[in-house]
C-alpha cells in the first residue's frame, strides 16, 4: 500500500489523519504514515484528542501544524463497512473496534486486549488486515472496511476460509476466530497460494489461547486456491 507499505501494527502512527489526496483514479490515497512518536505519546494524544488537532504542535512537537486536517474535527463520518456506506457520529479519539461494535452493532469483531496484542479485532481496510482496536475510526474514512460479518457471500455462502475452518474444526472457544478468519482472507487475497510458512507468518499476529493454530493453519491451506 503506497510508499509506506501495508499497515504495520508494530509501527507508531500519528493519531490525526494524514493529508488526503486524490489519486489518479479519483480515489483517496490516504496512507498509513508513520510518525516518529512513541506509543505513550500516541495514547496521550488519543486521550487528549479534544485538543489534539489545535494543539498538535504542543503535544507532539515536531509534527507540523499543516497536518491538522480540518476534517478531523468532523464527528459525522462516512464509513464503508461490508460494502455499505454508513454515516456515523464518531469522536476523533474513537477506535474502529469501538465504532464497529458499539455504533454499528457489528459485534463479530472482538476486543481481546484493546492494545494490539491479540488480533481478535482484526478487520480489513482496503484488503489489508489491521487491528481495529488500535486504529482510529477517523483514519479509515474512505477505506473499504470488511469485518467478519462481511466475509461470506451476500447469499450467505461461506467464504472458503470459513468453510475450511469448519471442516478442520479451527475454532475452539471461538473468540479469536473472527480475527483468524479475516487475517486468513486478507492473506489469500494477496497471496492465493501461500506456503505453510507464509501462512504461519501472516497469521502470527492472531493469538489463540486454546492453541488451535494447527487446525486453523490446516484450514488456511485447505482454503488456499479456492478463495
Amino acid at each position: 500500500m503506497d510508499e509506506y507499505g501495508p499497515y504495520d501494527p508494530t509501527v507508531d502512527y500519528g493519531c490525526e489523519p494524514a493529508i488526503r489526496e486524490i489519486g489518479p483514479e479519483g480515489k483517496d490515497t490516504l496512507t498509513w504514515k508513520p510518525l516518529n512518536m512513541s506509543r505513550r505519546d500516541f495514547i496521550r494524544g488519543v486521550v487528549c484528542s479534544g485538543v489534539v488537532i489545535a494543539g498538535a504542535a504542543y503535544i507532539f512537537p515536531g509534527v507540523p501544524n499543516a497536518r491538522a486536517d480540518a476534517r478531523a474535527v468532523e464527528r459525522l463520518v462516512s464509513l464503508t463497512v461490508n460494502g455499505r456506506k454508513r454515516q456515523v457520529e464518531v469522536p476523533p479519539n474513537e477506535t474502529l473496534a469501538h465504532t464497529l461494535r458499539y455504533r454499528l452493532g457489528l459485534t463479530g469483531t472482538k476486543i481481546g486486549c484493546n492494545r494490539a496484542e491479540c488480533g481478535a479485532c482484526t478487520v480489513m481496510a482496503d484488503d489489508t488486515a489491521i487491528y481495529a482496536c488500535s486504529t482510529l475510526t477517523h483514519r479509515v474514512r474512505g477505506k473499504d472496511i470488511v469485518t467478519v460479518e462481511g466475509v461470506a457471500a451476500p447469499d450467505g455462502t461461506l467464504h472458503p476460509v470459513q468453510q475450511a475452518f469448519i471442516d478442520e474444526i479451527g475454532p475452539q472457544c471461538g473468540f479469536c476466530t473472527p480475527g483468524q478468519v479475516v487475517t486468513a482472507v486478507a492473506l489469500l487475497k494477496k497471496n492465493p497460494n501461500p506456503t505453510v510458512d507464509e501462512a504461519r507468518l501472516a497469521m502470527s499476529g492472531n493469538l489463540c489461547r486454546c492453541g488451535a493454530y494447527d487446525h486453523y493453519l490446516r484450514g488456511v491451506m485447505k482454503a488456499a486456491g479456492r478463495a
Binding site: 461494535r101 452493532g105 457489528l106 459485534t107 463479530g108 469483531t109 472482538k110 476486543i111 469485518t147 467478519v148 460479518e149 466475509v151 461470506a152 461461506l158 470459513q162 475452518f165 469448519i166 471442516d167 474444526i169 479451527g170 475454532p171 471461538g174 473468540f175 476466530t177 473472527p178 478468519v181
Partner: peptide, 21 residues
C-alpha cells in the same frame, strides 16, 4: 461431526457476553 455452533463462530454471529445489547 460438525458441532452445531461452529458456523456462528466463523461468521461472527456467535454472541458472547459483551455482544448483547
Amino acid at each position: 461431526f460438525t458441532p452445531p455452533d461452529l458456523e456462528a463462530k466463523v461468521t461472527g454471529a456467535a454472541r458472547y457476553a459483551e455482544d448483547f445489547r
